[in-house]
């Protein structure tokens, strides 16, 4: 099945938002890449303080949550509302776990004296991952609003659920590039 040009999966509005967000994130990644190129020693030192295992845990939480959101959309399309809601709640739970783990990790960094304003590496790290975290939080709010409304008298349309899931996948996409820029090291 191929959809017409005017009806991308998830709706025109959310795709406009996602496209703009991707442009924004692309600018952020490019900036980080350029800083990394200009100051290799600083980035090397900074990355030594980051654990790639922690990075992998973040990735796994996000992609698993993404899978659950995609399953929820699929279930909702088949009008299996209960199943869709369970999947959405599971996706939200993993998203919350991401936020909790992120806050825990950030607290550790702050205790170690890594904070905004120390140098370009930590500025880039906190601003880059902070911008991503802001999107995760917005995504969680959107997912929750939709999840709690599935059983209302006037349930959300399929496109609304798909749109919210689409925003949630955007958070995955952004993380896929933040991850190698900060956590991968030789």
């Amino acid at each position: 099945m191929t959809r017409p040009l005017t009806e991308p999966p998830g709706g025109v509005l959310m795709w406009l938002i996602v496209a703009l967000e991707l442009v924004t994130f692309a600018m952020v990644f490019t900036l980080i890449g350029v800083l990394r190129m200009q100051q290799p020693a600083l980035f090397h030192a900074g990355q030594a303080a980051l654990s790639s295992t922690v990075g992998l845990v973040f990735t796994l939480l996000l992609i698993t949550s993404g899978l659950l959101a995609a399953e929820a959309v699929h279930a909702y399309r088949l009008t299996r509302t209960h199943r869709a809601q369970r999947f959405l709640f599971a996706a939200i739970a993993l998203g919350l776990a991401f936020v909790a783990f992120k806050l825990h990790d950030t607290a550790g960094h702050l205790a170690a004296g890594h904070r905004l304003g120390v140098d370009d590496f930590w500025d880039a790290y906190f601003l880059g991952t902070g911008f991503h975290l802001a999107h995760v939080l917005v995504g969680l709010v959107l997912l929750s609003v939709v999840a709690f409304r599935l059983h209302r008298a006037r349930p959300p349309e399929l496109e609304t659920v798909a749109a919210v899931a689409l925003f949630w996948h955007l958070c995955d996409l952004a993380w896929f590039f933040l991850f190698p820029l900060f956590f991968a090291r030789a």
């Binding site: 703009l20 442009v23 924004t24 600018m27 952020v28 900036l31 905004l116 304003g117 370009d120 500025d123 880039a124 601003l127």
Partner: peptide, 18 residues
């Protein structure tokens, strides 16, 4: 103001023309 404003201001104000 702190140096990180260069990054914040640069990225987001470059988006405004869009």
């Amino acid at each position: 103001t702190p140096r990180y404003w260069l990054m914040v201001g640069g990225v987001f104000s470059a988006l405004e023309p869009l």
